[in-house]
Design a protein around this nucleic acid. Sequence first.
DNA 1: AAAATAGTGTCTTTCAGACAGTATTAA
DNA 2: TTAATACTGTCTGAAAGACACTATTTT
Lengths: 269, 269
Amino acid sequence: MQMPEDERRAPEGYDPRDYDPVAVTVDVVALTIRDRALHVLLVRRGVPPFAGMWALPGGFVRGVRDAEDLPEAAARELAEETGLSTEGALARVHLEQLGTYGAPGRDPRMRVISVAYLAFAPELPEPRAGTDAADAAWTPVDALGLTESGGQLPGTTRRLAFDHARILADGLERARSKLEYTPLATAFCPPEFTIPELRAVYEAVWGEELHPGNFHRKVLSVPGFVESTGQTTERGGRRGGRRARLYRAGDARLLHPALLRPSREDTIR
Amino acid sequence: MQMPEDERRAPEGYDPRDYDPVAVTVDVVALTIRDRALHVLLVRRGVPPFAGMWALPGGFVRGVRDAEDLPEAAARELAEETGLSTEGALARVHLEQLGTYGAPGRDPRMRVISVAYLAFAPELPEPRAGTDAADAAWTPVDALGLTESGGQLPGTTRRLAFDHARILADGLERARSKLEYTPLATAFCPPEFTIPELRAVYEAVWGEELHPGNFHRKVLSVPGFVESTGQTTERGGRRGGRRARLYRAGDARLLHPALLRPSREDTIR
DNA sequence: AAAATAGTGTCTTTCAGACAGTATTAA
DNA sequence: TTAATACTGTCTGAAAGACACTATTTT
């Protein structure tokens, strides 16, 4: 029971503020595709602890004054960092809860519980540096040297603050998995896109090349994944090639049958 | 960034206790199979708000004094309610984070953020009533009249407090989904179990009957799902029938290929 | 014309599900 | 002996992946 004046441990009228102070924040793992590579939005810390290191955008949840719901808080943090309005370009961004991180000591100063959100965005403008944070940038996730155990390889230049390497690694695994069972790859695309563009999303997130012909047939065979616009691109590929047909996201909320990642035999046990 | 003295909104040395008080709790959706039906552990509230209604077991996270990690807090709440020790019978219980619920107004008295955990347990003893809560009981989930939208059907006798119908519905959907892709159905079974017992878990969680022959062959064909003990049960079925072979949980962490729920065509769009 | 890219046809293998059949046990 | 339960064999259709092929466009 989430009772503040819980009869089990506190008398009536008891105020948890005087008891066990816990701060609640939201952090956002915002992912996008730029130059065919997966990027994450990071901000550079200007003050200790972890000054000079990079972190996920985030901040306090407004608890009482202007109380906001958790997804609202995540959208607000994202808007503040990208400089976009939540009604405009950010309205098309997919936002879902990733998980909550609350290990004692994850912030060296006091107890902080952080609710992490995961965002899938089409290509967005470069974030405005200098408004809230010392710096902010879309960063290729490959350059962060993330390990499965939630750390970073030695020698990686951009070090992540707090437990943000763990949170980001969890977000990436969630994104990879979501692409298998849901049509959320379309959330990385503009409103109209081609099958090869969609394939580029899968290749960037999964980090492996897919067979163009089989991918094409597979996407069209899944009911509700994409729907045709009847249009094609204006031009073919840069170095030659046919013009591609344009599609919109369909109405399916799950892919059936799913689009499973190849070569997972190794990772399963 | 989850900084308590965040440079963006608060000066150095600022104490969030004086600022925006938010309480953090954990709630546990503990599931088990009893009499071939899925049950959830509920406690009955003795005091307002929602006095007389049923709720998920839970309570405050110990934030500073005896600071504990979130999974620890969930295990502690489960232990307090079942009367079992976390080292003993509860050590075999699978515990995973489900999600965090923090809508303003979900607790009528103040702002409470609740981190929900999901537990899969083999059959456990009846909880001890009267220690912490007014009453506690394993309750068949079918008797709660849960709706997909997070409510309860009118006429359901056991009403759930707060947003616990929503949390429980989310937990059930997570459990149903986990059974498809992971071997966690074994977490509902004793250390040694038969294929028909495992099938009963699937049938209880999914709420549909499965073809015994095809299920049997499928389970044995997935590498690492179960491993044989070489033993059989002492007796056959109550009304006759062959003795079943006994298996242990295998070392697979994912099922490949997965064991998909039948008849999902309807729910997908 | 050559190279690149989009898109289709076809074959093989795997696997889910239907269904029938065998093996073993309690009543 | 009968009914119930455990388990196995076999067929069919769906779908994934390999590979070859056609279509269209840029250089």
